[in-house]
């Protein structure tokens, strides 16, 4: 199988935000990981473990201190690669002075969607995330969960081959969980790869093929979902056991 994500020796050390910027904070340390085409990959970890850092490194939003990332076989700086990925950030914010439809149009232009089908595609995606009725509302008039839905909408706008999601379910209502899950499953059925992190273990259990645990910046475990479930019985037990083992090491 071909690897859509290949990470080698990836390290990010932040300068701390103190005045002299002398302190150093470990974001992630020495990470090796590959994700195959067609996988749904779930990354677990406590608050501050390094999940967002790892994702931003893969997306080129952060520059690595050391190591190397290949996305779809190339560097993420290649705009051909970026045209084929989708990203839902942790807390999605949008250009405040636009309406929902205008935001989507802006992003569609940046993605270079074909002019002919652009409009129909935007309507379609807004229907999928159940924001169709809000397309003429301005961003200021959206609830928090609606903003998350819009985040999801822009992430799948270009029907990406590889989708990154940083806590896609946070802020959603229970129906939103199911809808997000359905979107992930549908994309995956069509051969797309999804990399996401989440604290909602019951959802991870339902959709992931493979899971990994990151702890204090180190990737301490990677295994197929089936193996983990067989061994530990539930994602929660798996996660707690791995974190405990990680603390001891």
């Amino acid at each position: 199988m071909e690897n859509v994500i290949e990470i080698k020796g990836l390290t990010k050390i932040y300068k701390a935000l103190d005045f002299w910027k002398n302190d150093r904070v470990v974001g992630v340390k020495n990470i090796d990981l590959s994700v195959e085409k067609g996988e749904v990959f779930g990354l677990l970890g406590l608050n501050g473990a390094g999940k967002t850092t790892l994702m931003k490194l893969m997306l080129g939003l952060l520059k690595p201190t050391a190591g190397d990332v290949k996305i779809l076989g190339k560097s993420i700086d290649d705009i051909e690669v970026r045209a084929k990925i989708g990203y839902l950030s942790e807390l999605p914010y949008f250009p405040k002075y636009l309406k929902v439809r205008e935001v989507m149009d802006y992003f569609a232009e940046l993605l270079g969607l074909p002019q002919r089908s652009k409009k129909a595609r935007i309507e379609e995606v807004l229907e999928i995330v159940r924001l169709g009725a809000k397309s003429d509302t301005s961003i200021k008039g959206l609830s928090k969960g609606m903003q998350s839905r819009l985040g999801l909408a822009q992430a799948i706008l270009n029907d990406p081959d590889l989708l990154f999601m940083d806590e896609p379910m946070s802020g959603l209502d229970p129906l939103g969980y199911k809808e997000t899950r359905d979107i992930i499953i549908d994309l995956n059925k069509r051969g797309k790869t999804i990399f996401f992190n989440s604290h909602i273990l019951s959802e991870v259990e339902k959709i992931c093929h493979r899971v990994a645990v990151i702890h204090k910046g180190f990737l301490i475990d990677v295994q197929p979902m089936k193996t983990a479930m067989k061994k530990f019985g539930s994602m929660e037990k798996y996660f707690v056991a791995k974190i405990k083992a990680g603390d001891k090491a």
């Binding site: 705009i79 045209a83 250009p95 993605l111």
Partner: peptide
């Protein structure tokens, strides 16, 4: 707002 824009192609 920049993060979502800057990852676009």
């Amino acid at each position: 707002t920049l993060t979502l824009i800057i990852v676009k192609p």
